[in-house]
């Protein structure tokens, strides 16, 4: 059974290209959200296995959304067009499974972070 993914990013072009790539690698992209509040609603509604979560969202940022999803929620993988080191130790301490720079996103990179 394929892994279900929710893509959260405020840039439609990234959501579209990430959906195409992940679906090509066998993931089931079950939904998309453009901001933090939408992400929380879609997680509640769709219960995805993985949330690919952009850090720079227009309302709540990715760290705040991760914090709210902590517990028995889905695995969160943070992403950004900036590098992980730009955020210092924030990504490590956020409770997310890991961080992937957007330009390096691939199914295998995502799989490497999942259990």
């Amino acid at each position: 059974m394929s892994v279900s993914v929710l893509i959260v990013d405020d840039h439609p072009s990234f959501r579209a290209s990430a959906r195409m790539l992940l679906e090509s690698e066998g993931y089931d992209v079950v939904g998309e959200a453009a901001d933090g509040a939408g992400a929380l609603l879609e997680v509640e509604r769709l219960s995805p296995d993985v949330v690919l979560l952009d850090i720079g969202l227009p309302d709540l940022d990715g760290f705040e959304v991760t914090n709210r999803l902590a517990g028995n929620g889905p695995a969160v993988v943070l992403t950004s067009s900036r590098e992980g080191c730009d955020y210092g130790t924030l990504a490590e301490g956020s409770g997310a499974r890991g961080f992937i720079t957007k330009s390096e996103l691939s199914g295998s990179a995502l799989r490497a972070l999942l259990p």
Partner: peptide, 22 residues
């Protein structure tokens, strides 16, 4: 830069990667 050129280039990179897979 972040919202414009960077995002378009990132999308282009992912699209290229998808094309290579296919």
């Amino acid at each position: 830069l972040h919202d414009g050129a960077q995002q378009r280039l990132v999308s282009l990179a992912l699209t290229l990667r998808t094309a290579r897979l296919r």
